[in-house]
Computed example of a mutant assay.
Amino acid sequence: MKDVEDNIAEQQHQLRLCVAGAGAIGITLATKLAAQYPNVSILARGRTLADIREKGIALTDRDGHRALEVPVASAEGLGIQDVVFLCPKAQDLPQLAKDIQPLLHEGTLIVPVVNGIPWWYFEGAGASHRPHDIHAVDPGRELKALLPSACVIGCVTMFTAARISRSEAVAMNGVKLVLGEIDNQDKPRSHELGALLNACGIETRVSERIRDPLWTKVIANLMSNPLSVVAETHLRDLCGLEPLSRVVKQLLNEALLVAASYGARLELDPESLMKFAAGMGEVKTSMLQDYESGHPLELGAICDAVIELGDIRGLDMPLTRTITAIARYKSDAAMRAAA
């Protein structure tokens, strides 16, 4: 590890890091990176780009409050990058994948920091997984075409954050990531990137089976996010109060069967998942935050993709389908009313 840290130190004035997408997760990562690392930029557009240019970015987390000025521009204005962190909502990823093309060179590392089942799930997975297209997240195979698998490092977020303005975020429960090669091979680049992130105060570990923490996060989202929109309440009530907790357990059980059918080894058992979520307190899920803000919901990657994977294995998910349908109806109705 010392050799890796020395290597990172030697490269830190050369590697160019770009955070593409300035939502809550993007601002959190960009602020923590830029506080310790010299070559960090943000890809943004529209009013968000203008706000960050004028005000910089700011983060409040366990380490306090910090505000920084960070270069921000469109892809054409930023130029070639060595590592690109993709931080959009899942439904916005296809457009962002197009936007980042001017940032990429042959060796650019692409790190998708996105909720839900990723388009790369069956890429490089070996004989244990027959290849499939996941239509819920990549219906036209655009992502496969635009984001070369050889450049992708899998990433799972293990923290929550909220954006309180276009340029400022709050993340009070510890900023943690899991990285892993999507072909389950142990490669120096993942460890080097992990060392860089750790040096910037982003607690990062490298997994040899990235789909295990991925399923843990997907199930945690699936059992809470759509139901939080239907019930319009926070995690403590969802997972701690009857009858909502009973619904959460049923959603959890449906998702566990699908995960097991793909050989996943969850990093938290079901009871621990429930206790962890309830212990988060009055925290609103990202999907509930989006619903209340009138933004589209990440139902495709978090819900529809898991239902699709269940269909491939012949596993029905009746309650998940129902809760997803109600959440989608509420979201669509709210957006129509706002329009």
Rank of each mutant, 00 (worst) to 15 (best):
M287K: 04
A220M: 14
L104Y: 01
N198Q: 14
Q81E: 12
E208Q: 14
I323F: 12
D63V: 00
T233A: 00
H135I: 13
L319I: 10
A231C: 12
A150N: 09
G140E: 14
T233C: 14
L109N: 04
D269A: 13
A75T: 03
A161C: 05
H132T: 00
R166N: 12
A220K: 01
C18A: 09
R166K: 07
L266R: 02
A34Q: 11
N221M: 06
D183R: 03
I42G: 03
G124R: 07
D183M: 01
I117S: 05
P296T: 08
Y329Q: 13
L196Q: 06
Y329S: 12
Q185A: 12
L288M: 11
I153D: 06
A277I: 15
G56C: 04
L288R: 05
G56L: 04
A9H: 12
Q101I: 01
M335L: 14
D82T: 02
D212K: 07
E298W: 09
R236S: 11
C239M: 11
T28V: 15
L17E: 00
T31A: 15
E76H: 13
R130Q: 13
Q14L: 12
R321E: 15
D237E: 13
I8H: 07
R336I: 06
D316I: 09
V248N: 03
L29T: 04
Y291V: 03
V247T: 14
S286F: 09
D316P: 10
Y291W: 09
P213T: 11
F122Q: 00
I25D: 00
A22E: 04
R209V: 10
L268R: 14
Y121K: 01
I202P: 09
E242M: 11
H295I: 04
D6W: 06
Y121G: 04
K55D: 07
I25Q: 03
W119G: 01
D304Y: 08
Q95W: 04
T320S: 15
G126Q: 13
S228Y: 00
S261K: 01
E168M: 03
T320E: 10
L252W: 05
L266M: 09
W215Y: 08
T108D: 12
I302C: 04
E54F: 02
E181R: 05
L257Q: 14
P243D: 01
A337T: 12
